[in-house]
Amino acid sequence: MDTQLILFNGFNGLIVGAFYVLMALGLSLILNLSGVINFAHGGFLAVGGYLAYTLTPYIGFWPSLLVAPTLTAILGVVIERTMVRRLYGRDPLYSLLLTFGLAFIFEDMTRAIWGAQGVPFAPPEYLSQPISLDLFFVTYYRLFMMAVVFIAVLALFMFLRYTRIGVRIRAGTLDLETVSALGVNVRALRTLNFAVGIFLAGLAGVLAGGNLSLEPTMGANVLMPSFVAIIVGGVGSLPGTLVGGLLIGVAAGLTSVWFPSASEAVIYVIMAVVLLVRPRGLMGEEGVMT
């Protein structure tokens, strides 16, 4: 088995894992504060990617990298304010049904607007070069992608750790009622938190579009692994989500070296093992979701 193949697949796994992380962190934020399992999260990813595709000819790649996720987040705010909010505090089944329906709508809307065929979305030419001939799979774009994901995750963690709003979001994760009794507008807090989560999905969409190509179904493909990342890492723990996402990405990548056909199944095997050994997930705290 040659090392280059292992490195190639391991690196691919890391890239894929980074996408899972961006997706899963957004899902986690929304689940933790609002108790909503957002099945439409993949739809937002696709919207982000396609918006960047449409915007790039006009404003260029670099501005699109920020503008497309921002527009996606604004769409998220509209949907939260008009639909999702009404279901807070009810049986989770309601919001599950709503977001499940939204996921279909998103997929069909992207298909109607941009076509069922995948569209190529190329990052700037100079980013597509490999850094060396031996490591042909390590392109500047992929390194750049890793850097963006790293910065986004770091920014998110700093925001939650050091800003007053971030502290309130962490407090609300465990006891939103008391946060509200302390005078904090919890409606606005939930909307903002939703927007941050959707922004991350939109960003993942732009990055993913530049890595592969854009397809209406691209969101659905990363949604399930992202849920797995949350469960493996431990529901309620954002650092856990980070670890879970990278772990299953790399595991799937490496599995494809030896058993390509098992590379999709392996993440569920990992989930099953983690749940058997440690039901709350790798870094989850006991009783968070009770």
Binding site: R164, V167, R168, R170, A171, T173, L174, D175, T178, V179, L182, G183, V184, E285
Partner: peptide, 16 residues
Amino acid sequence: KIFPNLTVDDNLKVPL
């Protein structure tokens, strides 16, 4: 009902 996962200092950052 203090926030068990937050430090004392962070608990005091929550109120309006």
